[in-house]
Design a protein around this nucleic acid. Structure first.
Lengths: 124, 124
DNA sequence: GAAAGTAGTTTCCTATAAGAAACTAATATT
DNA sequence: AATATTAGTTTCTTATAGGAAACTACTTTC
C-alpha cells in the first residue's frame, strides 16, 4: 500500500483506541500518590493492620485520613479486604485479594522502570 | 520456605522498600487523567501534531489547555519531543523519545489489565 | 486513675487538577 | 473583507487531592 497516512487500517485503529481507553480506566483506578504503594506494600509484606501500614517505611508520610480513605477506595474496588479481628484492643487486618494480585505484573513493570528512572535521574 | 513471618530478612526488606518507593516515583510522574493516554497515542500512532492529538479518539474530551500543559510536562521529563515545522501555517509535531519508548512494557501491562478489568466490570 | 495503644473520623485549610470559554497571532483560503 | 486553521494562552470557575491537628471511643497496662 502506498498510503503514507499516520493512521493504520480501520480494525487496527479501533483496536488500539480501545486499548488506550482501557489504560485510561487503569489510571483512573490507580492514580494518586498512595494507591500503588499501598497495594505493593500489602503484596510484598502480606496482611497488615492499619497502624502497621501507617508506619510502614514504604508509606512514610501518609496520614491517617488519607490512609483510611484510600483503603476504603481499594476495598470498594475489590483489590483488598478489610477484616475486623475481635482481639483485646480491636484490630483490623487489610489483605490483598486474588484480584488485587493480578496487578502484580503491572506493579513489577512499574518498579523496574522506576528503579531505572532513579538511576537516570541521578546520573543526569 | 517455611518462614511464615510477615517481614523478611533485613536486606530483602530494604530492597522491596526501595522498590515500592520507586513505584511511588513512577506514579508521581505518570499520575493524572491524560499522561498515559498521550504517551500511548504517540507510541501507537507515531508523531502527531497538536490538533491531531486534541482530536484523537483515544484523547476524546481533552481540552487545549490541559493538552498543552501535559505535553510540556512530558517534554520536560524527556518522554516526548516538540518540533516546530516551518510550514505555511506553522505546525508542531510531538513525538515519543527513545526514553519514552522504554515505557512500552509498562503501558502494555496497563492495557492488558485494563482490558481484563473492563470485562470483569461488565460481567459483574 | 493516668497514659498509651487500637482504628479510625472530623474539621479546617491549601494546592493542584481539570475544564469551559474566550482570546491571540499568524497565515491562507474564499 | 470575512472565515478558517494552526497552536496555543488567558481567565475564570469548580472539584478533588492531600494534609495537619484535634478528637472519639474503647481497652489495656502502669
Amino acid at each position: 500500500m502506498t498510503i503514507q497516512t499516520t493512521s493504520k487500517h480501520a480494525l487496527c485503529n479501533e483496536d488500539h483506541t480501545q486499548a488506550i481507553l482501557a489504560s485510561r480506566d487503569v489510571m483512573e483506578l490507580l492514580s494518586g500518590k498512595w494507591k500503588i504503594a499501598i497495594i505493593a506494600t500489602l503484596s510484598f509484606e502480606g496482611k497488615k493492620r492499619f497502624m502497621d501500614l501507617s508506619r510502614a517505611k514504604s508509606l512514610e508520610g501518609i496520614g491517617a485520613k488519607i490512609l483510611s480513605k484510600e483503603l476504603q477506595n481499594l476495598e470498594s474496588n475489590q483489590l483488598i479486604t478489610r477484616t475486623v479481628c475481635h482481639t483485646k484492643p480491636i484490630t483490623v487486618e487489610y489483605e490483598i485479594t486474588e484480584y488485587g494480585k493480578t496487578l502484580n505484573s503491572l506493579i513489577t513493570e512499574m518498579i523496574k522502570w522506576g528503579l531505572e528512572h532513579r538511576k537516570r535521574i541521578m546520573t543526569l
